[in-house]
Nucleic acid binder design. Structure first.
Lengths: 350, 350
DNA sequence: TTGTAGGCGTTATCAG
DNA sequence: CTGATAACGCCTACAA
């Protein structure tokens, strides 16, 4: 365990070489004799030497750390399993390349921007990944302005072509989800999405509309609801929908958690799923399997979103003229028991 | 936006002072004239100066970053809402004092220890918080050996007196939960806990046993089950319990997620909660409210665990002779619909 | 109140 | 192959 603060110099002394030689051994420089390499390594071992990352960063102008930018911490998003899962993905991608993660948070958007500026200008990180994608985002403008390496999870609102991002095909996934319901025979399908501030919501809404249009089902504004990505949101949404004179017979819901809220409310109102109402939701987190009934949900491979994001970022960092790219993560509709043909009162459609 | 890499020297030049003066302005040194202070600040503004954290860290030997050590990333724990919530707490505590978070992960215990060694010896962080507490933990030994500032969330297995930690009173919380069931009239109460490797499990088991003993209810080994902290665990546990000749009429379950699994399995077996079986679980995450039936759960104030942990750590960092302390976070039993008096077939106990 | 100079622990560029 | 030596950007005695 030895003395704290063993430096390269101590090692050099013990091994009878110059500090620069030790440095070379650390960097595994090819042009160094096996003999001294051995000698130095033994010395390091003996002294319990560990390179000082900070000093190394200063000298080499690189930190091997990537910064995480999340939505404001007050945000409910934190409660959603989405977050730990992307994080896990990012973390794994980073770990494989020996990068560490660095994060700061803020309560407001301005605090967050501030935190980002600090970590970027303060040279604490080599690159940044944004865990969300909002419609008008100062953080993105800032990063673009300094042309600092960054990757967005989700689709950037502007300059899509110039920003490397990892996303699902949200248009298609929602279109497919809606089509699935249409195939089951539903004609009255409502859209319960998150805030229109989020790009993902915009994309999905388009997919929903397209599916209806292609099936020649009229769009109905009252069937489109935007709520917070959580339980309470679900409750309110359902309240509104079910007070319409023509209630929907099926719902596409932006998120499993929200869907759980919907399920509850429906239950309280004495409506059964899928008997009275069918539901398709998104994310396919563990919970969707455990709900009653188990939810049909679109798996968007959250872990991969994170994993690919850190991979892309690291490429961007290590190869300054890496082209910008867009990575689309696949999705799949996982069918469970929350969907059924609508009850028509007449006959059963197969 | 200007040139990248504006240094203290550039500012000094523009403001017509020595670099050291600029440094003093940054540190807000009292012995510096208002006039030059102003001048320097303007220069900083004009050049868009931001201090380089790395350089500062190297010179001052402090990083204003705290390291996070989590259980192995492959671990199911990641899926549990516990994790993002403590993280949020830690993050908030850190943010208030202008500390950033630094994390690395590993798949095995050895990888994790390695990561810790790297961040500690590499001087990347000023202190560390452990997000778990296991029975024999190399990380703790290591940290203690170097006497590096750290805080444990949960109760350390050994040397409790010498390690600052933030915990619930797990003995008492479990004792109370069990007593609640006893008061309802239950005599056959099973314990479905996590791995005995985790200190929290040990403590709770003791609380459970004490409650039974005080009520003069015989302990029954078959009623004590240890499973992974997740859904699957719950399933298996229930299977075992319900195949006993004397089935329990109530369960205390270590975690809401696990309880959800239990709920499902029970449902599949045609048993009703709380009709046939009562359940008390722990953590009181959002989900417990949304389960069917809503779960009676012990709220352990996860956010606070994290928040206090970072507070304590920062004190430890900033005041080297801060005494070790133990912070106990309160808990409360939140009663919902998953508990009822046992069905005796004879009379109803109130 | 301010400037000078050395050091924090590495890396990198020269020579040799 | 290896050794000086100068950065990296900031902090901090010590001097003035």
């Amino acid at each position: 365990m030895n003395d704290l603060a063993v430096t390269i110099k101590d090692v050099a002394q013990l091994a009878n070489v110059a500090p620069s030689t030790v440095s070379r051994v650390i960097a595994n420089s090819p042009r160094i004799s096996e003999k001294t390499k051995q000698r130095v390594k033994e010395a390091m071992e003996q002294l319990g030497y560990h390179p000082n990352f900070i000093a190394r960063s200063l000298a080499s102008q690189s930190t091997r750390a990537i910064g995480l930018v999340m939505p404001s911490s007050s945000d409910v998003v934190f409660q959603n399993p989405f977050f730990p899962t992307v994080l896990q993905g990012i973390s794994e991608g980073a770990h494989e390349k020996n990068y560490a993660l660095h994060m700061t948070t803020g309560k407001s958007e301005d605090e967050i921007l501030d935190a980002v500026i600090h970590m970027v200008q303060g040279k604490r990180v080599d690159g940044v990944v944004l865990l969300y994608s909002k419609v008008e985002d100062k953080v993105i403008s800032y990063l673009q302005g300094r042309d600092f390496p960054f990757v967005v999870i989700g689709k950037p609102y502007k300059h899509v072509e110039q920003i490397t991002h990892v996303d699902n095909d949200n248009f298609r996934s929602m279109k497919e989800a809606t089509e699935y319901l249409i195939e089951l025979g539903h004609q009255h399908i409502a859209f319960v999405g998150g805030s229109l501030d989020l790009v993902v919501t915009v994309d999905r809404l388009l997919g929903y509309e397209r599916a209806l249009r292609e099936a020649e089902i009229p769009l109905c504004n009252e069937y489109i609801i935007h709520e917070e990505f959580l339980r309470e949101g679900g409750r309110e949404a359902v309240g509104e929908l079910m007070s319409l004179e023509q209630c929907p017979t099926a719902l596409v819901v932006a998120d499993d958690f929200m869907a759980l809220g919907v399920l509850n409310t429906l239950d309280e109102m004495g409506l059964s799923v899928p008997g009275d109402i069918s539901i398709v939701s998104f994310n396919n987190v563990l919970l969707s399997e455990m709900a009653k009934p188990p939810l049909t949900s679109v798996d968007i491979n959250i872990f991969d979103l994170g994993y690919q994001a850190s991979k892309c970022l690291i490429q961007l960092i290590e190869n300054s003229n890496e082209p910008t790219k867009r990575v689309i993560i696949s999705h799949q509709l996982v069918k469970r028991q929350s969907c059924d043909a609508p009850y028509t009162g007449k006959s059963i459609i197969i």
